[in-house]
Amino acid sequence: MEHYTIATVAEKSPDFRRVLWTGKHTQLVVMTIPPGGEIGEEVHEVDQILTFVSGVGEARVSGETRKVVAGDLVVVPAGRTHNFTNEGPNPLVLYTVYGPPEHADGAVHKTKDEADRLEEAGKDEPPTS
Rank of each mutant, 00 (worst) to 15 (best):
S13D: 11
V29T: 15
K123F: 12
T128L: 12
S54R: 12
G71A: 09
Q48I: 10
I6Y: 00
R60W: 01
G37Y: 04
K110S: 14
G23K: 10
D72K: 08
V75E: 08
L50Y: 13
E64I: 14
E41M: 13
V93L: 02
P34M: 03
E2L: 15
T128M: 07
V43C: 00
A70L: 12
A10L: 05
P100R: 11
M31L: 11
N90M: 12
Q48K: 12
K110C: 06
D124M: 10
V56I: 03
G79L: 03
Q27M: 10
E45P: 02
M1F: 09
M1K: 09
I33Y: 08
L20E: 13
S129R: 02
A115C: 05
E45D: 14
V30A: 03
T111W: 13
I49F: 03
E38Q: 13
R117L: 14
V30H: 07
P35I: 04
F52A: 09
D72Y: 07
I6E: 00
A59H: 04
V108N: 02
M1D: 11
D72L: 08
E120C: 03
T65P: 03
V75N: 06
T111Q: 11
H25D: 14
P127W: 04
L73I: 07
H82A: 12
T22A: 10
G55R: 00
E41D: 12
R17S: 08
K12Q: 15
R66C: 03
A10D: 05
V93Y: 01
E114C: 01
V53P: 06
G99M: 12
E120S: 14
G122K: 09
E38F: 02
P127V: 07
H103Q: 05
E58V: 15
E64W: 04
R18Y: 11
T51I: 14
L20K: 14
G23A: 13
T8S: 15
A121V: 07
S129P: 00
E45A: 06
